[in-house]
Design a protein around this nucleic acid. Structure first.
Lengths: 135, 135
DNA sequence: GTGTTATGGAACCGTTTGGTTATTGAAGCA
DNA sequence: TGCTTCAATAACCAAACGGTTCCATAACAC
C-alpha cells in the first residue's frame, strides 16, 4: 500500500457518515436506497460517499436488478490498522515515563512542562534526541 | 471519544506529511524547525500541520527557550485502532465465505458477482439481511 | 412500448484545506 | 538596549469537499 493509498483510506474514514455506512455493511451487503435511509442527506450524497469508499478500496459493488449492492472490503482497514500498530508501544509505557520525568527534572529547570491545559495529568516522555533538538 | 473526535483524528492521519511528523515524533520530541527540515514545504505550513495534530490530540506542545517542542500523544491513535478493531473479524473469514458463496449460487442465478475488476479473486459474503435489502 | 424504481451524473454553491509570502511576537544573547 | 532566532499569525489563493437540485440511465413489470 502506497503512502497515498493510506491517505485515501484515512480520508475516507474521516467522515462519520462513511464510517456509519461501513458499520452497516459489516452486517451484510446493502443497496444505496437502504444505506441512505437512516441519514438526513439526499441519495446523491450517499452515492458520492460510496464512491469515496470504493475509491479507497473499502467497498466493492455489484448489481442485482436495479439495485446496486455495496460489499465491505476489510483489507484496507487491516492495512490502516497495521500502520497504527507501530504506535501501540506508545500508549502504555507509563512506568519508565515516571522514571524519565524524574531524571528530566534533575537535568534542567524547565522540564518541557504541560502541553494542552486539558492534558497536564500525563507525564512527559524524555527527549531521546535532545542533541538534535537544539542544533 | 465522540464521533467527531474520531473524524478529527482520521482526518489528521489522512495527510502523508502529518503521518511522517508523527513517525518522527515517535523517536523523541522535536522543535518545529527540525520537523520542517525534511519536508519541501515552508515553516508556516508545518506549523499549521502541527496545529491540526494538536487539535486532534495527537501531539502536545511545550516551550523550551525559543523552540516549541512537539510531543507525541498516542491515546487518540489507540482509540482509532479500537474503532478499526471492530472489523478485524472481516479480514480473515475465508472459510465460511466459500461455503456461503456456494449456497448463494443455488439460491439465485446472478450471485452478486464481481465488484471492482481488480478484486474479483475474493469470494463474496452472503447477504444476511437480504429481506431488508429488497423491501 | 410505457411506466416505475433505483441509481449515477452534471451543475452549482459555500466551506475547508493546504499551500504561499510577509509580518509579528517572544526568548535568548551582544 | 538592540540584534538574532524560532515560530505563530495574517492575508491571500487554488483545489477539494460535502451538500444540494435537476436530469439521465438501466433494469424490471405491465
Amino acid at each position: 500500500m502506497t503512502v497515498d493509498q493510506l491517505s485515501t483510506v484515512f480520508g475516507a474514514l474521516a467522515d462519520p457518515t462513511r464510517r456509519a455506512i461501513l458499520a452497516r455493511l459489516a452486517e451484510g451487503d446493502l443497496a444505496v436506497r437502504d444505506l441512505a435511509a437512516p441519514f438526513p442527506v439526499s441519495q446523491p450524497a450517499i452515492s458520492r460517499h460510496l464512491k469515496v469508499l470504493e475509491g479507497a478500496g473499502l467497498i466493492s459493488r455489484s448489481r442485482r436488478a436495479t439495485a446496486r449492492l455495496s460489499h465491505l472490503e476489510a483489507e484496507p482497514l487491516r492495512e490502516a490498522t497495521a500502520w497504527l500498530a507501530r504506535y501501540q508501544a506508545y500508549w502504555d509505557e507509563r512506568f519508565e515515563q515516571l522514571d524519565e520525568l524524574l531524571a528530566e527534572l534533575q537535568r534542567r529547570p524547565e522540564p518541557a512542562a504541560a502541553g494542552t491545559p486539558t492534558k497536564v495529568k500525563k507525564a512527559r516522555k524524555a527527549e531521546k534526541k535532545e542533541g538534535r533538538t537544539q542544533r
